[in-house]
Every structure is written in C-alpha cells, then in structure tokens.
Nucleic acid binder design. Structure first.
Lengths: 147, 147
DNA sequence: GGCAGATTGACAAGTACCTGTCAAAATCGC
DNA sequence: GCGATTTTGACAGGTACTTGTCAATCTGCC
C-alpha cells in the first residue's frame, strides 16, 4: 500500500526513535531544571545570557528560535528575577538581558546536575557508538537542511 | 567549571544533534502534510484511525500522548470533515473516530508523498549506518526510560 | 543630512502539547 | 445487584513554540 523500500522502512524506524529520544531528553531536561525553579527553555536562555549580556534577537539567533519565542521566555524569567533588562548604549530599542545573582546561581545549580547526568549516561554507551550516532545524525540533519 | 568527561562532552553533542534532527523532521512532516490540508499531528491521528475506528483514549495510548492532546486534534479534524464520530455500541461515553472519504483520501495523499520522501533520504545513507544509529538510539531511549 | 531598507521589541492569534479537575459511564469485587 | 474503582470525554489553564503585523529605531547609501 505504501511502497516503502527496505531502506525506507529502516528509515521510518529511525524517525520513531528520534522522536522518542527527543521526548525523553526534553523530559529529562525539565527534571534537571525543576529543582532550580527552571524549565528546559528557561535554562537554555540563561545559558546563552551567561556568555554575556545579549538582546532578545541575539539570543534567538543563537538558539535557532524566533525572537517572539525568546521574548516570551525572557519575560517570564524577568518576572521571576532570574534575568534583568539593562539599557543598551548601542541600541535604544534592544535592551540587554543580563544575569543577576539569582539567575546565575540557578543556572550553576542546573549545570552541576546536568554534568553529572550526562556523565552517568555517557558511561553506559561506548565512545565509538556515541561518535558514530552523532556523525550519522549530523549527516542526516545536513541532508534534511539541503532540501 | 562544568566538569564534563570526554564522554559527557560527546554525549552533549549527541543531544544537540537529536534536537536538531527532530526539529527538521517535524518541519519536513508538516511540509509533506500541508498539500493535503494536514499537519504532522493531524496526519498521525488519521494514520491511527485508518487501522480501524478508535476512541480518543485508544488513539492517545497508541501515539503515546494524553487524551487531551488527541481530543484537541480530533476536534479540529472533525470540524474540517477529515474525521467523523460514530456511536460506540460498547461504551456510551467514548464515541469512535472513523475515516470518511475526505479524510481517507487526504491520508493516502500524504502517505504517497511520505513514502517517496523516506525512500529518497534513505537512499543517501547506508543500510548499516541506518541500523546502527537506530539501535544506539533505541538503547539510549531505554536507558532514559529506566531512570 | 536625509531617506530607503533592515532590524528590533511588542502584540495578536494559532498549533501542539501538558497537568489538574470533574461528572458520567463502564468495570470489578463480593 | 450494588458499591468502590477505573476509565472516559470535556473543560480550564499553562508552556513552548509558530506566523503575521506594527511602529520605533538603527544602518547603509548617496
């Protein structure tokens, strides 16, 4: 009925696994971030801002999201005191997002937990396998981007 | 600062690739489904119902989502005539979702496009690589599920 | 200096998920 | 058969994204 080749079928199974692992990783990220009062999305924004004060548009470009998405997350972070707006001497429109102590310590807390989590999981998979799967996924990503 | 081992670092790169490929696959799915007036989510629901009339709760279990998510999608599909509710002789609460001709033809159209797309992409990656990456991802998924 | 075009943050509305809650209906235990 | 438990659809509200639009501001060109 759906005339899939052997490869097409194998490929379909890969899709399912990517979706599944993606969902599990997101859930794991939220779990790691929760004790610090964060979520995956909020944590990622803090991570970018940690590299230096940035505008909403800059963070969006770094994360591969739209300005609108970052703005929403940033607004909620400001509301919770995890992030502050600073005036930007170079652009009157685009205020800079910066990390106050409260945001910095929340970020550090999640980073510690994440490092331990990553090490634990990585220890259960051989380095060769890890590299192989990353490489293949990167190729697949490039293929998908080309179209 | 973040005390990641070599493996932990390699693992972090894998995370990034999984997120990237996931996003690209979702976008590709929406593109495949759009000409038939569908989205990835709507298409998936039609795909499940194609196997036989099912209740919202059954579809949710099959897709690994909550009933609430499926209900939302199903409601919009009913609004567009892609799906119809049938009375369920076995349960007065849970009506059955069924595929009228309009939904069936939309589904077939997407399936044809999807099969061609999957074959094209799969042809560019060796079968061995495809199997290896699927296997490793499955192991990783199992690992993540265990915690 | 001044104007065209690009960039930016804000706002609105939509999609796709989630958790929590509720009442109705089905199922299970006795 | 009857009461306790489970399942179900519906509703409310929240998160994390998207596209489209707008006015303010910045930038590049002449």
């Amino acid at each position: 009925m759906t005339p899939l080749s052997d490869r097409g079928l194998e490929f379909s199974q890969l899709l399912v696994e990517v979706f599944r692992v993606n969902g599990l990783l997101l859930a794991a990220g939220d779990e790691l971030a929760a004790p610090a009062g964060l979520t995956s999305a909020r944590w990622q924004v803090l991570g970018v801002v940690d590299h230096g004060p940035s505008t909403i548009a800059q963070v969006a470009r770094t994360m591969g999201l739209t300005r609108q998405a970052v703005r929403q997350t940033a607004t909620s972070l400001v509301r919770d005191g995890m992030i502050v707006f600073q005036d930007n001497p170079h652009d009157r429109r685009a205020k800079l997002l910066a990390l106050p102590p409260r945001g910095r310590s929340a970020l550090r807390r999640v980073e510690r937990r994440q490092a331990q989590w990553a090490d634990e999981l990585a220890a259960r998979i051989s380095l060769a396998e890890l590299r192989a799967v990353t490489g293949t996924l990167r190729d697949l990503g490039d293929l998908l981007e080309d179209r």
